[in-house]
Design a protein around this nucleic acid. Sequence first.
DNA 1: AATATAGTTCAAAAGTATTTGAACTATTAA
DNA 2: TTAATAGTTCAAATACTTTTGAACTATATT
Lengths: 98, 98
Amino acid sequence: MIIELNAQQTDELRVRIFKALADPIRIQIIRYLRRVNKETTCGDVSKVIKMSKSAGSYHFKVLREAGLTITRKDSREKYVSLNYDTFEKYVNHFLDSL
Amino acid sequence: MIIELNAQQTDELRVRIFKALADPIRIQIIRYLRRVNKETTCGDVSKVIKMSKSAGSYHFKVLREAGLTITRKDSREKYVSLNYDTFEKYVNHFLDSL
DNA sequence: AATATAGTTCAAAAGTATTTGAACTATTAA
DNA sequence: TTAATAGTTCAAATACTTTTGAACTATATT
C-alpha cells in the first residue's frame, strides 16, 4: 500500500531526510553502507565508525525514520542497507521535484 | 581561483549544505527562487514567505554560506538567485560523489 | 538636511539535536 | 541455567539552531 503525501507532508519528509543527512557521523555510515553494498549489521558499522552503542542506535534510528535505510531483524542482529529509492526520489531529484 | 577541498572539508561542506536544506522556510525560499527563475530581492521573497526581517536575513545567510545561493548587491537591495552548480554537484550527485 | 527603505547584527530566549551511561529486552552459546 | 552478545530506551547533560526586537549601516527620496 502506497501512501500519497500531500504538499506539506512532502516538505516535512524533505526536512526529515535533509536533517538525517546533515551530520558527519551519518554521512560516514551512509558512505560505509554504500561501499560494502550489502546488508550490514549495526555492530559491524560501529566497529568501523567509532561511536557508543546508544549513539549508534540513535543514528540508525534517524536514518531509518527518514526512509534512507531499510532494516531487517534476524535473531539478535539487525541488518541495515541503503534505501536507494529515497535517495533517488528526494535527494537526486530534489530541485526538480520542488 | 578554485579551492580544492580535502575529504574532511568536503564532508563539512556536505553537512553545511544539508543543514541549510533541512528547514521548511528555506525549502520555501528555494522553491520560490526556482519558480521565478531570476534574481529576486530578499524583500520580494519576504513578501511571499512570511517572516521577520531579521529571520529572513538569517535564512538567506545560511543558504549563501552553504553555497546554495548567489547574492549580488545593487545599491540598497540584495539580489538572490540559486547556485545550480552546488545543487548539481552536492545534492543531485550526493551518493555518487561519496 | 530629514525621512524612508533595504538589509545586517546583536544578545537573549526558546526550541531541537546529540551524547552519555546505566538499566533494559531478546536471543544465543557454554 | 548462567554468561555473553546485539541492540534499545531513558533521563540528564551538553551543544546547536532559530526567532525576536531593538539598534545599527548604507543608500535613496523629499
